[in-house]
Design a protein around this nucleic acid. Sequence first.
DNA 1: TAGTGGTCTAGACCACCGC
DNA 2: CGGTGGTCTAGACCACTAG
Lengths: 241, 241
Amino acid sequence: MNHADAAFRAASWRCVRDELLRRINERIWRPGDLIPNEAALADEFQCARATVSRAVRDLADKGLVTRRRRAGTRVALNPPARAVFQIPILREEVEAKGVAHRHIVLERALAAPPALVRHRLAIAHGAAALHVATLHLAGGAPYAFDDRWIHLEAAPEVLDADFDRLSPNEWLVQNTPYTDGEIALSAEDAPERVATRLNIAPKSATLVLERATWRGDTGVTMTRISFPPGHRIFTSTGFRR
Amino acid sequence: MNHADAAFRAASWRCVRDELLRRINERIWRPGDLIPNEAALADEFQCARATVSRAVRDLADKGLVTRRRRAGTRVALNPPARAVFQIPILREEVEAKGVAHRHIVLERALAAPPALVRHRLAIAHGAAALHVATLHLAGGAPYAFDDRWIHLEAAPEVLDADFDRLSPNEWLVQNTPYTDGEIALSAEDAPERVATRLNIAPKSATLVLERATWRGDTGVTMTRISFPPGHRIFTSTGFRR
DNA sequence: TAGTGGTCTAGACCACCGC
DNA sequence: CGGTGGTCTAGACCACTAG
């Protein structure tokens, strides 16, 4: 007897979730309130506890409720606004706008990385790393400037990589798996070197996306991608629902 | 007979997931490869299909594999880098650094919002909205400048709100539920007005976080938060695992 | 220690959609 | 058509922890 009510049968756990969500949004359950336990909800909705569990877990994953064993489930006090940004391959980002993408490798050299890079990527002291600077163009106009260090120990094959077809970014994503990553965003006055590449006035406000990836404990790559003034990064989806 | 092997018993679905993850990271299953179906994996791991399902679903949620009904599950070609940023309450962000937070409401007035705001928040033509400018201080130094419009129809009580204790940001989060939101990040040369507030040189590069929230189809608030040069926004967690 | 969420199981039906 | 993932169920045991 899996359905006492056709409305719930057709719906599944999403239906339960949406109803719980409604009660939260309409303040029927106010922030801080304890909501009924899974067994009670399962009883109310005439479904298995696993179904309720999945619904509530979904809300918990979104940060709308907090759960603790024994203590029960409460409506979150300050529903955290999580923003999920897609960090796309630049080529795909540009082409998604219907504009032709092209990249130019401006620099490519083995060199000793700066101390900061060396430490974060766990590169041995004195060891060389690959430094690559790439300009990405959208319809002929500068779109982003990618300044990157690659740890040879993590990606030795990169020495033979052909960056004509695949940009360093793409090559790494496709050839070097990573297990961890970190991203930081900031605004910076464009230094001369970057301003020249992006063809903007020196000291213009650029959006800088710094990204580092690791495979286990070994750093793979660190990059700074600078976008010209006016560039925006959007949340891929609404950050709550 | 729920456990043929103690190693899996102790672990649960995370254990299965981690093993699948290992095979992906170590290129045992390469990008584009079809992985065994749920029944086969359940058989291999000596567990219920639901357990495998949960493990694989977790990877799918992270974008590491793609699933389609009849077609099976494949290792993703371009594992998308999703970056999850916490967009915290400024007070909490500052206090988390161990610094005292204070805010000052610099402007507070009813006015006709600019067309762009009016349209996005679905404010009736000619209707007034509440405009509030707030400066947030960390240890006495300017930390962020919040320039905000609030839709009165969505939050009429805001007229009586006391912004001395709670900043407009906090007040809204605690008093006005929303169902959708959008965030954009960009870099901008600080206009005179913002530069003065933040006590920085005009045209310095500021990081601008624009945020809009809706409750159903009705806009609630739109805000532009400007951070002085040097400010960084980090991913809250590694963006893959 | 008792009640909560967390997880697992075995089995079932269904929706989708490549073949 | 048939195989895949998606979901649900009823029941069970366990881990955690508030009271």
